[in-house]
């Protein structure tokens, strides 16, 4: 991994209700560069259900404080709430605002003028194919539309890091493909953008990410869980030639790595 470190999660531990959930989770996100092409970063954080992925997101976004350890941005700067975007698992939106107004308020909350926020909202509605849904209330949206609004809302004022909690769950194949494209598109809007995808969908995560981190617990020799999840494995997909390719899923190396990861996943 070459480029500058954009984000570091350093030895993050968290205990909840007396149980160790995260145990010294550490990883770095490096700037990925490609000649002649703006390349954002997409990292996938894989882990089985209940391992602590959502808790880790909350800590990285500075919504919760870890018991120990820290999360820092470029050149070691601490992260404040509001600096890291999060698309939450169930796509919360302001129920009393229309889709358009949900996007506008995100702009205004970040200091955009009303006119600028309206401009951004309009642009994003078109980009996310929600142009005809601008005047709908969240209660009138389908699951997939709701997700797109939630993502759009987070990039009205793009943050350097956007975390997405299970963005691939409950989508039909074409919607899944669409969201995957969207993730890549948003990441590549800026060289320093990073999107963190937190999921148990191995295939989708592999297809869009440049780096995969596997979060999991250790086991005793007789197969019992030890408390506390940590990064068990890091896969550099750029090094393996499995990043930034539309046809990546058809490569034999993709399939064999998928198999390897699945195998590993089962043991976590």
């Amino acid at each position: 991994m070459t480029g500058e470190v954009l984000f570091s999660v350093r030895e993050v531990s968290q205990k909840l209700g007396g149980a160790q959930i995260l145990d010294r989770v550490s990883f770095d996100v490096h700037d990925r560069t490609r000649a002649g092409q703006t390349t954002g970063q997409i990292i996938g954080i894989l882990g089985p259900s209940g391992v602590g992925k959502t808790r880790l997101i909350r800590i990285i976004a500075a919504l919760d404080a870890p018991d120990s350890g820290s999360v820092v941005g470029i050149q070691g700067a601490p992260i404040e709430p509001g600096q890291v975007g999060v698309v939450f698992q169930d796509y919360p939106l302001l129920r009393h605002r229309t889709v358009r107004s949900n996007l506008e308020v995100a702009g205004i909350a970040n200091g955009l003028s009303r006119a600028a926020a309206q401009g951004r909202a309009k642009k994003l509605l078109d980009l996310f194919r929600l142009g005809d849904r601008g005047s709908y209330y969240p209660a009138q949206l389908s699951g997939g539309q709701r997700q797109r609004v939630a993502i759009a809302q987070q990039i009205v004022c793009p943050k350097r890091l956007l975390l997405m909690d299970e963005p691939f769950s409950g989508l039909d194949p074409s919607a899944l493909e669409e969201v995957m494209h969207l993730v890549v598109e948003v990441a590549n809007m800026d060289e320093l953008n990073t999107i963190g995808i937190v999921t148990h969908d191995i295939r989708a995560a592999m297809a869009v990410s440049d780096t995969l981190f596997m979060l999991g617990r250790d086991r005793t020799p007789d197969g019992k869980w030890l408390p506390g999840a940590r990064i068990q494995e890091t896969y550099d997909l750029v090094e393996r030639g499995l990043a930034w390719r539309d046809d990546v899923m058809e490569l034999p190396a993709f399939s064999s790595l998928e198999k390897e990861i699945r195998q590993k996943f089962k043991q976590l």
Partner: peptide, 9 residues
């Protein structure tokens, strides 16, 4: 939290 990550005061 949703509003907080959006950067709202």
């Amino acid at each position: 939290d949703h509003m907080r990550v959006l950067g709202a005061s």
